[in-house]
Amino acid sequence: MYKRKEFLRVSGGLALGLAFGSVAEACSPSKGSIARLGLQLYSLRDDLPKDPKGVLKQVAAFGYKDVESFEGAEGMFWGMGHKGFKQYMDSLGMQIVSSHCDYKKDFEKKAAEAAEIGMSYLICPWVGPQKTLDDYKKLAEEFNQAGAICKKNGIRFAYHNHDYSFTLQDGQYPQDIFMEQTDKSLVDFEMDIYWVVTAGQDPIAWLKKYNGRFRLCHIKDRKKGVAPTKGEPNLSVIVGTGSIDFKKILAAARTEGMKHYIVEQEAYEKAPIECVKEDAIYLNKLTF
């Protein structure tokens, strides 16, 4: 997610009265594919606040088994409370495995509620480019502290990258600082594959370098024929239509300890709900 410092307000968006047929059967995973495909709900950031239950019902029908939430205007649980959200997820046959959130505000409460409903992760989605490498070192220590709070509650803490941490700064990659100065017993990482590629880096090389540290990933494809540039606008496209070789990368990710595979759609070629539907059809058929 890019610069998610505050929730994007509803603007326009899709009228949710459209009827979409279930594609769950068509997306039934086969051996060697993703057993439980997840969706980052930020993909439907404009539609979700209008009708959370209706949107989530469609997501389930598309063959998603897991969801990763984020903090919108009504918090991580979209006005249902943590127990109400879990109850609704259960009724749809889905599970909330993680959420992006602000770890600097009411984090003890967030960790306790997440643990109470069986979530696995709370995740920092964005810290922004820092002025000095020492600033990244200070953030690594903050991650350790947040990780300790999560561990106390029986869940895990993780950091989700953008391109800036995979871009050289004063001869060093900030991502290396995060990896090396966080306690592996407290902090995991969510690799946003799109942003690693956008930074001109090889996701597989990083997965191998830090085996077992990247436990979640964002699957987000990138427009073909456009060279990565610093500060580029988001060029995400429907998974399977872009330039990223997910068959190869996800196979390596599985070998290197990846556990959660989560779709994130940030830019749209058609209605957002249709984009995530097509993402699910492609990925639930992909073998690797």
Rank of each mutant, 00 (worst) to 15 (best):
G75A: 07
Y210I: 05
R213L: 08
K224T: 11
I219N: 01
P228C: 11
K247P: 01
F189V: 07
C150H: 06
F85N: 01
F178V: 05
H260T: 10
V187R: 03
S243W: 06
G240I: 06
A60D: 01
S98W: 08
M119L: 11
M119S: 10
V197M: 13
L37F: 06
I193H: 00
D47H: 02
K50N: 11
V67H: 00
K259S: 11
V59G: 00
L283E: 04
D66A: 05
V237I: 10
V187M: 10
Q201C: 10
D202R: 12
D221N: 09
G79W: 10
D202H: 12
F157R: 06
F107D: 02
A271N: 14
T167L: 11
S243C: 14
D134T: 13
V67T: 10
E266V: 04
G79Q: 09
L207V: 08
Y159T: 01
T241R: 10
L186I: 08
F166E: 07
L283N: 03
F178T: 01
A61V: 03
Y210N: 05
S91P: 06
F189N: 00
G75D: 04
S236D: 04
D90P: 05
M258C: 13
G93K: 07
A73Y: 14
Y136E: 03
N284D: 02
A199P: 10
G54I: 04
M80V: 04
K3S: 13
L18Q: 12
A253N: 08
P228V: 10
G93I: 05
P52H: 05
K270C: 13
F166T: 09
Q40L: 10
G257C: 07
E6A: 12
E108L: 15
I244N: 00
A26T: 03
Y2P: 08
R156Y: 13
A112N: 07
A19E: 14
A280F: 00
N161Q: 06
A73E: 14
G54P: 03
E180N: 15
D221L: 07
